[in-house]
């Protein structure tokens, strides 16, 4: 048991470099997310930790033990695959028992039962994957990986195959499950909302490199790069200063002291249901979007307004 450490990992594919010098430490028991757009190298990183691919350079360590060169079946980590990769010829219980049987675990039956209970699938133990719902498949895959009590559980976009409503529900379950089992979770995703809501820590990746590591708040509120700022949410850029639309205010009168103010003209106003989205143009040609709550009033196209925000909400990012 211990922290999972990646030390200067590189991986080249024939056409390009996929992972370009990644170093990070994933503390034991942490819910850690690797967030980035598709093709950023996050899945390859996961595959190298699982042992499906070997890094060209760099070390992968788990609690001081080096994992490099170990076959996937020799590593104390397990994976929940994006497609779940459930064995179609085996029932839920048999899928969960698969790994225990390989180890010749004498306690297989009890552990399978517990794992089924853990993910609330006891009633579906004898179902084949083809007869399961998306959520049931997902839980089977989770139980199958957790039952081996790995030191790290790797989750490769495990929620992406579910419909949006189920995805939100599984998000909660996943968070609870991690708290209960206390195993390190390494969660791979391209969905910033998922990463923000689930993680203790997030590492943002782009083009094979780490952009920033931090808590969800740090990443969202104090992004280190323009990429991170933009990937986690919409940003209004005024020179080197960025501010998120939901922190941008609009008023007809000039705001009080201390606020940063820009005068602008309303170019469009849209009703989004939970808020209004007002787009404005500054004389300098910047476009600034503000999301404002109901009750603040409606703005007309062409109206001249004051756009402002609190200096504390600014994100200053060196270009």
């Amino acid at each position: 048991m211990g922290d999972l450490q990646l030390e200067a990992i590189y991986k080249d594919f024939p056409s390009h470099r996929v992972v370009d010098g990644i170093s990070l430490t994933i503390p034991q028991g942490c819910f850690y997310s690797l967030l980035g757009p598709s093709g950023c190298g996050k899945t390859t990183t996961l595959r190298m930790i699982a042992g499906f691919d070997e890094p060209d350079r760099g070390l992968i360590r788990l609690g001081g033990r080096t994992l490099n060169g170990l076959r996937p079946y020799e590593r104390p980590v397990t994976t929940v695959f994006q497609s779940y990769a459930l064995f179609p010829h085996l029932t839920a219980a048999e899928n969960i028992a698969f790994g225990l049987k390989r180890k010749g675990d004498p306690d297989t039956a009890r552990k399978v039962k517990e794992a089924l209970d853990l993910v609330q699938l006891s009633a579906k133990a004898d179902r084949l994957p083809a007869k399961m719902s998306g959520g049931e498949r997902q839980r089977t895959a989770l139980a199958r990986a957790l039952v081996l009590q790995p030191e790290v559980l790797l989750l490769d976009e495990p929620l992406s195959a579910l419909d949006p409503k189920l995805r939100k529900q599984m998000r909660l379950e996943l968070k609870e499950l991690q708290a209960r089992v206390g195993i390190t979770f390494l969660f791979i995703t391209h969905d910033q909302e998922e990463a923000l809501s689930l993680s203790d820590r997030i590492a943002v990746m782009n083009q094979g490199r780490l952009e920033q590591i931090g808590t969800p708040q740090e990443i969202y509120l104090a992004p280190a790069t323009r990429f991170v700022a933009g990937f986690l949410g919409a940003v209004n850029w005024v020179g080197a200063i960025g501010v998120r639309p939901e922190m941008t205010r609009i008023s007809r009168e000039a705001p009080g002291n201390g606020a940063r103010v820009v005068e602008a003209t309303v170019s469009s106003a849209m009703f989004l249901g939970d808020c209004f989205q007002v787009e404005t143009k500054t004389p300098a040609g910047d476009s600034i979007i503000a999301q404002i709550a109901h009750g603040i009033g409606e703005f007309q196209r062409g109206e001249r307004v004051h756009v402002w925000w609190h200096p504390g909400d600014e994100m200053a990012i060196p270009q």
Partner: peptide, 15 residues
């Protein structure tokens, strides 16, 4: 045959 099934087997400790 889905290649990830073989990876899953190896991941779960199957030689």
């Amino acid at each position: 045959l889905d290649k990830s099934l073989l990876e899953a087997a190896a991941d779960l400790g199957a030689k």
